[in-house]
């Protein structure tokens, strides 16, 4: 690992003073960043430790549920308010990583984690995300884990988070602090598609800090499910995952939320499929129609062709679980 300077500014304001310089990175749990530094994928000159900032609280607000950016993934997943108000989030978090990593990883860090594309990690390989302009090793290479939605010829990597898939489905809002104060970004607009700039994972302005997320109240507690399909039963990244939440009254769907993980450069929200479900009977037939609609525009790159079948089957399965039909 390259040498770096380590600083721990006392306040949020002091953190904002130092993070707007090139070569500077924030460290929270470090579960992804330290790994990337060990492999030489990233080599910051300065690490800014923010763990002492008071951003760990989980509280009820008039609008919903507020979770501080430094709340640990394990703490959020076991929190009573989260279990009561947003069980989908707890379920998604529990399916991610390992107990040890969840004890280190923060909510903000989970959002900021990089792709696990093998070409991004292997510094001997081309990767437009790691070295812009060097090419995409995965496009015609080993791409079993890769995107089927929203990719570009520059990058077909996927965002690896489970937590983010649930937060995208739940209409969460990201609260970001900059020198001029705080602003809010819808979760679905936080991460971005690769386009011609796969080196940029998200729309967090340079020099600014995620301070928390807020999830608006909803009526989706009774019928929600996070399905994660992976190569082994636990402690593996998703091949495909689905966050499904429904509000069902007398067998009719009043409100639906759907998002997928493991299929795109960002959590992939399925707005059209949601619209199709509203007013329909909560049945396998409706779910299959939604799944079929959700697959419009999907494109595979060779090794990941199986996802074209796995993804709609997973959507249907997740919705059946959410609706209590399984």
């Amino acid at each position: 690992m390259k040498q770096f300077q380590y600083v721990q500014p006392a306040t949020q304001q002091a953190v904002l003073e130092v993070i707007n310089k090139p070569g500077t990175k924030i460290i929270a749990g470090g579960t992804n960043l330290v790994d990337l530094m060990k492999r030489g994928v990233t080599a910051p000159d300065k690490l800014v430790d923010i763990n002492h900032l008071p951003l760990k609280h989980i509280t009820s607000t008039p609008k919903g549920l507020y979770i501080g950016a430094l709340a640990l993934n394990s703490v959020v997943s076991e929190n009573k308010l989260v279990a009561e108000k947003q069980p989908l989030l707890a379920m998604a978090l529990k399916s991610g990583a390992s107990p040890q990593l969840r004890n280190m990883a923060s909510v903000g860090g989970n959002m900021m984690q990089r792709t696990r594309c093998g070409y991004f990690y292997d510094t001997a390989m081309p990767c437009n995300k790691r070295v812009p302009g060097s090419g995409c090793g995965a496009y015609e290479g080993v791409n079993r884990m890769h995107a089927i939605f929203g990719a570009s010829s520059q990058c077909i990597a996927v965002h690896p988070s489970d937590m983010c898939v649930a937060l995208a489905a739940l209409d969460a809002v990201v609260i970001i602090a900059g020198k001029k104060g705080e602003h809010r970004v819808p979760f679905t607009e936080f991460h971005r598609l690769p386009g011609d700039h796969p080196e940029t994972d998200n729309n967090l302005p340079f020099g600014e800090l995620i301070v928390g997320v807020e999830i608006p109240n909803n009526n989706l507690q009774k019928n929600s499910y996070y399905l994660k399909v992976r190569d082994r039963q636990s402690y593996a990244f998703a091949l495909v995952s689905v966050a499904a939440a429904l509000d069902i009254e007398n067998g009719i769907i009043q409100n639906a939320r759907l998002a997928m993980g493991g299929v795109a450069h960002k959590p992939w929200r399925l707005f059209d499929a949601e619209k199709l479900l509203i007013g329909k009977k909560a049945s396998e037939e409706s779910f299959q129609q939604a799944a079929q609609l959700a697959m419009q525009g999907a494109k595979a790159y060779g090794h990941n062709s199986f996802k074209l079948k796995l993804a709609p089957a997973s959507i249907t399965e997740a919705l059946k679980h959410a609706a209590g039909l399984v």
């Binding site: 380590y6 460290i27 470090g30 330290v34 690490l47 430790d49 990593l101 280190m104």
Partner: peptide
């Protein structure tokens, strides 16, 4: 926790 991904200074 995983001590291999934990910086001592922290």
């Amino acid at each position: 926790i995983n001590s291999c991904l934990t910086l001592g200074v922290m």
